[in-house]
Nucleic acid binder design. Structure first.
Lengths: 335, 335
DNA sequence: GAAGCCGGTTATAACGATTCAGCAACCGAC
DNA sequence: GTCGGTTGCTGAATCGTTATAACCGGCTTC
């Protein structure tokens, strides 16, 4: 593969000039510029990034570690981050930790030996143990959607409590007074916050919020809860459920329909995340949407700010507001 | 950040010895080994990959470009590839082309300037135009799940025709003689092959296969087809549908149930891909499963074979056999 | 006692780019 | 015709690592 010297020889100039053509073309005369460019094209020359990184002391890459690539939330977020990185001439390396601390640790290590400029990461363990070591050794890090508790770090997140309030307010305004919150484990901050927000509004309306904790945010969990709810006499059943994510909501929808409950007539449903399937469900789902793409963009902005400002950078925590998308599963005004 | 010289100074040896500790510890005396390792730990030294790559003339990375990271098929495939890469001490860089030729081209370019050892890619355009340039300049490439037409390349894929046969045979054995195939665009080789396989078996059984082409493999497409089918008088309606993927199948399931058709009583449904939602659907879906993980592993194996064998490597096309997962949507034996 | 060997170590030369001081050629101005 | 000032290019040093040849006591071996 052609090196810069080969190009230089072919164009009859020195290597330094070729480098100038590549990096500061305005410092080269039009005539040689053309000659060198021709040589580059003829040889199919591509600069060696390793050599560049070595002399520059930094690579042109940042890392992005998400807990689940198959979740559209993170795919959109990744796109947003990439757009911003692009404007900085930086490549985003994407990794899927799959919620595994081990994988996260491995990837962080890889990114560090690769000397990436910075890392965007949704930490698996909320204390951010793996991440702290990186930071101490000087790699800029921005936290995504989790671990906002860590004050001396940049982070972006969505206000889950506000999301809970949004969903609950919507139900209350539709006349619901018996509402169930389905989600879990409650130890997950995201779930907890959504619950707290919901409780706040239901309480304020003088309603009753029943909390049904489930082991995971899955379709299966939603189905078994709905099956149990359907068994109750109508008077002891909530008229609406607020689910911690759309998967649970879809499960509830399936099992409830199956058991003969009509949605939203007998049971209104609100989901969370607004995944693609939410709109495509048998009864399109009302859901809380998060500004995913924007989240990625701002996270990347913060990261580059930190990279460029160096020591005199002050960390910021950005919190986005979610938005309610109303569809058929909560029906029309009631009561 | 600490360099190898810093470690050497601290341990009272030369840089060469530190390098030996890292790369050929058996060539170093136990005493100095220990001293050097201690120094490494104390300084938190991490070798600079750019420098390593520069002298080695090759990086320790390969690229993986998939058309849709959110599709579990590719996520599993990526995991398989990564496992293999791990045993070669190589990092997998993951990219999402999102079916965009532009993005694919950009990523391929990035990978090439990064001097990756090789690339695994599901080409967006089936001719593989973008990919050919890479290959000509000497980067080993293995094609994933597409573009198997290109003979002088390594590739892995799943036998879609066999998948179609598998699904159709299952329906025929359950007594179905009026079957509809729903999928499209038919120009997509995957879809076409599945259809051909299905036709083969339905024809052999003396049945009738109706082809319903849809613009895309989406839930919405499935729903509108099912709505139309439900309008027909029972005698003119197929008793079973074979869908080109699970999303269509889920759409059909929803709309059919909605219209009062019972699944599988009035309409049996077979999907394709066996995505997670298939098992979690209102009526769990019979579907054709592909050995996704294995696909990734073998693709990576082929790539490393090519990387290590160099010129005297002969390209291979590996084709996997799919597997039918029977669930409730095709019910019990009929007729 | 000289020659050869051996494990363990060091010094040195790459790898492919960028940067920067320095130099030649040319410019208009006096 | 000489002088400062550009402009455009070259040559050398440099980044952090690995590979390799050379070295060096200490030990056999004849």
């Amino acid at each position: 593969m052609a090196r810069i010297e080969d190009v230089a020889a072919r164009a009859g100039v020195s290597a330094g000039t070729v480098s100038n053509v590549l990096n500061r073309p305005q410092a080269v005369s039009p005539k040689t510029l053309e000659r060198v460019r021709a040589a580059i094209a003829e040889l199919g020359y591509l600069p060696n990034e390793s050599a560049r990184a070595l002399v520059a002391g930094r690579t042109r890459t940042v890392g992005l570690i998400v807990p689940d690539v198959t979740n559209p939330f993170f795919a959109d977020l990744a796109n947003g981050a990439e757009e911003v990185a692009d404007t900085h001439d930086v490549i985003v390396m994407l990794y899927n930790s799959a919620e595994s601390t081990d994988r996260e640790l491995r990837y962080l290590g890889q990114l560090e030996t690769q000397r990436v400029q910075g890392v965007l990461v949704t930490p698996v363990d909320l204390g951010g143990g793996n991440v702290l070591a990186l930071i101490e050794r000087g790699t800029p890090v921005v936290l995504l959607d989790r671990g906002t508790g860590l004050r001396d770090l940049c982070s972006v997140a969505v206000d889950d409590r506000a999301g809970g309030r949004l969903a609950a307010t919507h139900l209350v305004e539709h006349g619901h007074r018996r509402v169930a919150f389905i989600g879990g484990p409650l130890a997950v901050p995201q779930v907890r916050e959504r619950l707290d927000g919901a409780r706040e509004m239901v309480d304020a309306a003088g309603g009753i919020l029943e909390v049904i904790e489930v082991p995971g945010l899955t379709v299966g969990a939603g189905r078994s809860v709905a099956a149990a709810l359907a068994e109750r006499p109508p008077g002891e059943r909530p008229t609406a459920v607020l689910c911690a994510n759309d998967l649970i909501a879809l499960g509830v929808l399936q099992a409830a329909t199956r058991a003969g409950l009509r949605v939203p007539g007998d049971l209104a449903i609100v989901g969370y995340d607004d995944i693609e399937f939410a709109a495509a469900a048998a009864v399109p789902l009302t859901s809380v949407r998060q500004p995913r793409h924007q989240l990625g963009r701002v996270a990347a902005d913060l990261l580059f700010e930190e990279i460029n400002d160096g020591k005199r950078h002050s960390h910021r925590q950005v919190v986005f507001q979610p938005e309610l998308v109303v569809r058929a599963s909560t029906g029309v005004q009631r009561g």
